[in-house]
Structures are given as structure tokens and as C-alpha cells.
Design a protein around this nucleic acid. Structure first.
Lengths: 351, 351
DNA sequence: TGTTGGCACTCGAAGCGATAGAGTGCTAAT
DNA sequence: ATTAGCACTCTATCGCTTCGAGTGCCAACA
């Protein structure tokens, strides 16, 4: 994008003004609010040029300009400067993210909640992708005849469990044998390398009748697979209704409708994450307006960062807000929450 | 309420018409839509009377009437007749509530989701109140030095667990001893009779140094207390935006704002539940409009039923919809979902 | 006494025209 | 390349009128 300096400044100013006023900005008010050394007529020429490049657009013929998706993109990529949060803001976040929590899930919910409160937008987080973590322990506990609990401890310090049905007449001792065999043979294996076949061969040699054994092994396998399922946490959907951008009920409805299908949102984040991984970019994922392939989010921007539970186990945390947002501020907020989250995660996972 | 028959019919008709059209209903249209054997002038007199009794009201001087909270209340208490769902509707619900689920929590989420889809409103459920259930098993598993998992099996077939911190240098054997002592002494006790003192005395006699023992016992106690904490599940908040009743953004915002504070909603349900228990009424709790002591729910009705996990362990499931709803239909839907839920719960809890 | 037809009155919703104001594009001069 | 000036455009808004559904009340009637 070959823009001379003044044009860059003009675009910057238009984005800033539009973000803060929510009104299309015209050449005159631009002169008033900023100290350009040229006249409004000159800015009009520049604006015509920016419009030609598709960076800004007019809602109607005789109105001011608003940034287009492409304009916001240019702003985010090359114009804005990111500042650190003030110590006060940092403290506020530190305080809200509770350090007394002992489970990863609670910690993530905590961070999501905090992020929604500090940004005033919808926040969301994906649970850690555990497929690269490995099994450290697996125990099967009898609950009552026919029912057992599979408890797994994963390398990332995460504990998962699942209630499963087992044949009624299996006794404690048999279950212990099977449990021991699985644990012995699968400990240290990453979850994504564990298949039904692996589990079945791990259980071989246990002196339990074949069909019964097979059922238990299947259930154990199902429990392991369930452990690496992804969860998504969304918070603060109602905040969108406070934004003038969604004062039209139709838009608000479409947006909340889409967000209510958390599976769809999770799928989209996963997709984005794959792109990020392959592009080698390790900081933020930013999607603006139509770039987001979800219905009803045309007027939104979607920003996520990646947090790490361990080196190989990570998840995402971020916000969905209006396109018309203070990008630099929001990005610093996400960044700070992410860092705090990483710190707490480390506390939880180090022995 | 001493109302002659025709006045009852008039109120009935006004509620029905208003529910289906969402427009204030006048004497003339009342004549048109129903076969009253009198003139519109007569109905006008009746309506003036009903207004005097506070059962209906006018949005403004020259408009038709709409039911007041008191009017809806009268309708619900003595006018409406409840019909069973059609076999088709029943089947639809049966199908949606999945029978392959093995955990109570999943089952409840499932039922909540179904209820929101069938009614088109916000649905919600409270997790079972476990304080009357008793401990069947309690195991403490070492995860790694300094970290353990407390697993509890409760009488209602519910499994709960919590990761806890323990002193670093406790070994497997010591933990097993403590775990065994607690289990031995507390099995069969209802959760609400277990206090820190009970747990501490249960752990006595274990050959583990005093301060270490005390910490573990405290953590075990905390885990037990956490097990009977209540959870609330809310679904379909976005559906409210589809209702003409909430087309004013302000109302929608207040409503969703309140619902987003799930703790507050849970507290309110608990309060309602206490009233129900003491009044001996065992069917539905219905709260209409201003009867609901929650901000922003003035235009809503709140209907819940009680489901049972076992005889002494129960929770609630219901909906929050607009006051202007088809009460008889919604009540049958809740009732049917509740019955189905009870059935599935029984399947899960019977050995 | 309960019911009815008639009538004047009320009030919001919808449609219309005029006006104001912010903004644009273009042209001609610097 | 920049600027002043001007004609033009489009929306938002205000006030005005009209329309219609609905009400309350009164006098007449069974």
C-alpha cells in the first residue's frame, strides 16, 4: 500500500474519530479536531483518493466517511501504535484473576470473565488442546456394580474423568488389573497417538474374559478421547447490547444467535489457529468484519491470543467486539491477560 | 375473586387474544373474534369493571385493554385448562433428550437445551441439591508430590472431584491411610451433616504427623463442601431478542444483563424453592411480571418445576419467557420434560 | 336492572412538506 | 499541488394533518 505520509495521517485520524464518535467523519471536522497544515479542500482530495483505494467509504452521497474493513486492516497492520497498560489497569487485572484457584478450567473461566469486564466486550477462551499432552496416570475406580470412574492425570497437570458403564459382574480386582495394564502400557504416550487399537493391545494379557475385557477397554478409550475434547467459554454476550453499533435489533439478534452456537464458534477458532500455526505468526490473530466467516459478525472484529499451559499445550483467549473499537487498547488488554494467565498456568503445572 | 361467568369469559378472551396478537384488545374486536351473545357496549361495561378490579389495564386512554399481572395471575390460577402435548410433540422431546448419557450433569444440560428449543424461550435448570445425599465412597489419589485428587461418590450416583494441594512430602501410603479413615467414618453421612469438626475427628488415629494431617483433612473437607455447591444452567438467552415484547433495546439489555449474573438467578430460584417446600405445593412455581424480584424481568414470567434425582435429592427446571405467553402450552412442555428427566435420572441412579 | 345504539372525544400512528445542516465534488485561481 | 468558493445532495427532524380504533357516557328499551 503506497500511501504518502499525509494520507496515512488522514486515515489514522478518520479511524480515531470514527471510533470515538461513531459518526461518519467529514473533511471539516477533521480539520477542527486535528492540526493538519492544509485546508479542508485538500483533505477532500485525499479522502477521495483513500476512497478510491477502498480504505474508507460513504454511507451515502452527502455524508462523511467511515473506515472500510480494508481501512481498519491497514490501520491495524501499519498505522496504530500499541501502548502498555497503565500500572493501575494492570493492577486491576492482576487482582481480578484469582491466584487461589487450583484447576486449569477455573483459571480459564476466571480470565475470560476478567477480559470481558475490562474490555466491555464479549470475551472467549478455548480450553487447552490436550492432544499433545501425554498420559501420566490412569485409574479405573469401581463406583458400584456396573459403573466405574476413569480418572486420568495428564502431563500438563490436568485431571480428567468420566463415568462409564462396565459389565455388572466384573469385580474390583479385575478392574484394577485392567486399569494397571492400561496405565503401564500407555503412560507417556501423547493423547493423539492413542487409538482404540493401542488401548486394546495395552489391555492384552490381563486375565479377564475376552468380551468383558473388550467392553472395559472400549470405555477406557472413550474416556481418553473425551479428555482431549475442546471446550469453549464465552462471557458477556449481553454487553453487545450496550454498544450503539448493535442498536438495530436485527444485528444484535444475528450476532447473539451465532454466538449461542458455541460449537460453531469453537470450530472457527480452530480453523484460525491452524492458519496461525502454519503461518508461523505467534502473536495475535485479528479478523475484521467480513474477514470473519461467521454469520452476523460483519460488524465485529475478532481478536485472539494464544496462551500456553506447557510448551506443547496451548489454547486461545480473546474478544469479539465491534469493528469500531480501540484496537491498540484492546490488544494490550488481551496481551496482559494472556501473560497473567500464562504465569498462573505455570504455577499450576510446575510440581 | 367474585366474577360472574361472562366476565370470566371476557378476561379469558382478552388474555388469549393479547397473547396471540400482541395488540391491546378492544370491545369490538372481541365481539368479532368470539361468539359473545351480547353487544360491544355490554362488553365495554364488563371491561370497565375488570379494569376496576385491576385485572386489565389500558396502555393509554383510547386504546384497547391488556391483562395486568393480576389478570394473568387470575388466568393461570382459575381460568386456563391444561392439555397434554400431542404425541408428536412428546416424541420430539423424547428424541431430543438423549438416553445415552451417563452423567447427571450432561443429562440436565441436555434437558435444558431441549426445553429452550421447544418453548423458544430462555430455559434454566438448577443442579440437584446434594446436601441430603450421603457419601458412599471417598478416595484421595496422589497426582504428584504436593497435589492430590479427592474423588467422592454420592448416594445419588453422582461423582464429584476436586484437585487439592497437600504437603509435598506426604507419600502415597500416608494419603491412603487418611483417605481410608475418612471413608470409613463418614460413609453414610448426609453432606449437610459433615463439618470440619466431623472430618477432623474422622481422621484421628491415623499415624500421620499432626499439622500435615490437619491440612489434608481441611482440603478433604473443602472438597466435600464444594460437592454440594449449586450450579445453574441457562440456555437460549438470545431467543428473547426474537420476541416483539423485547423489541425495545433497553428492555432486552436489562433482561440479558440480569440473566448474565447466574449467581443472582440461582439465588432467586433457591428462595422460590424454599417457599414452595414450606407451602407444601409440589407442582409448579409460577411468578408473573412484578412478582419476580429480579431487575429487568417485569415483562417476564418465570415457571419452574421440580425434578427428582432420588427421593430426597431434587433440583429445578423451567423457563423464563414473556408474560405474554401461552401458559398452558408452556406448562405442559415443562411438565413433560421434567417427567422425561425424572425417568432418565432413575435409569442413571438405579444400580 | 341489565342491555343496547349512538355520539362526542381521545390519542397514537402514519404520511407529508418544509427546513436546516453537514458534507461532497468540481472549477477556477494561486 | 493547494485552495476558496459554490452548487448540489441527502438525511434528520419538526410541525402539521388525517385516520381509525377505541373509550365513556347517556338516553332508550326489555
Amino acid at each position: 500500500m503506497q500511501l504518502d505520509n499525509r494520507k496515512k495521517e488522514v486515515l489514522h485520524a478518520i479511524v480515531d474519530d470514527y471510533v470515538s464518535t461513531n459518526e461518519p467523519v467529514g473533511s471539516k471536522s477533521l480539520i477542527e479536531r486535528h492540526s493538519f497544515q492544509v485546508s479542508s479542500a485538500t483533505l477532500r482530495n485525499d479522502m477521495a483518493e483513500l476512497e478510491h483505494l477502498g480504505l474508507i467509504e460513504k454511507p451515502h452521497t452527502s455524508a462523511g466517511r467511515i473506515p472500510s474493513d480494508k481501512g481498519y486492516r491497514e490501520y491495524v497492520n501499519s498505522l496504530m501504535t500499541i501502548e502498555e497498560l497503565s500500572p493501575k489497569e494492570q493492577l486491576e487485572i492482576e487482582k481480578r484473576i484469582d491466584s487461589s484457584v487450583n484447576e486449569v478450567t477455573d483459571l480459564i473461566k476466571n480470565a475470560t470473565h476478567t477480559l470481558s469486564e475490562t474490555t466491555g466486550f464479549v470475551s472467549l477462551a478455548m480450553s487447552p488442546r490436550l492432544k499433545k499432552s501425554f498420559l501420566k496416570q490412569l485409574k479405573i475406580l469401581m463406583i458400584e456394580p456396573g459403573k466405574a470412574l476413569v480418572v486420568m492425570v495428564l502431563s500438563a497437570g490436568v485431571v480428567k474423568d468420566k463415568v462409564v458403564r462396565i459389565p455388572n459382574f466384573l469385580n474390583d480386582e479385575q478392574i484394577m488389573k485392567i486399569s494397571g495394564a492400561i496405565e503401564k502400557n500407555l503412560t507417556g504416550k501423547p493423547l493423539d497417538e492413542i487409538t482404540l487399537v493401542t488401548v486394546e493391545s495395552a489391555g492384552k494379557g490381563t486375565e479377564v474374559p475376552e468380551p468383558l475385557l473388550k467392553q472395559v477397554l472400549y470405555e477406557a478409550y472413550a474416556a481418553i478421547k473425551q479428555a482431549d475434547e475442546l471446550n469453549i467459554y464465552l462471557e458477556g454476550e449481553h454487553r453487545m447490547l450496550n454498544l450503539p453499533d448493535f442498536s438495530s435489533l436485527g444485528r444484535a439478534r444475528d450476532l447473539l444467535g451465532t454466538l449461542s452456537d458455541s460449537g460453531m464458534v469453537a470450530g472457527y477458532i480452530n480453523e484460525m489457529e491452524n492458519v496461525r500455526e502454519h503461518s508461523g505468526d505467534d502473536s495475535f490473530m485479528i479478523r475484521i468484519g467480513q474477514e470473519i466467516a461467521l454469520e452476523g459478525l460483519d460488524d465485529c472484529s475478532f481478536i485472539t491470543a494464544t496462551y500456553n499451559l506447557t510448551d506443547s499445550v496451548s489454547g486461545n483467549i480473546g474478544v469479539i467486539g465491534p469493528k469500531r473499537m480501540l484496537y491498540s487498547k484492546v490488544i494490550s488488554q488481551i496481551d496482559f491477560v494472556k501473560k497473567k494467565l500464562n504465569k498462573e498456568m505455570q504455577r499450576l503445572t510446575e510440581i
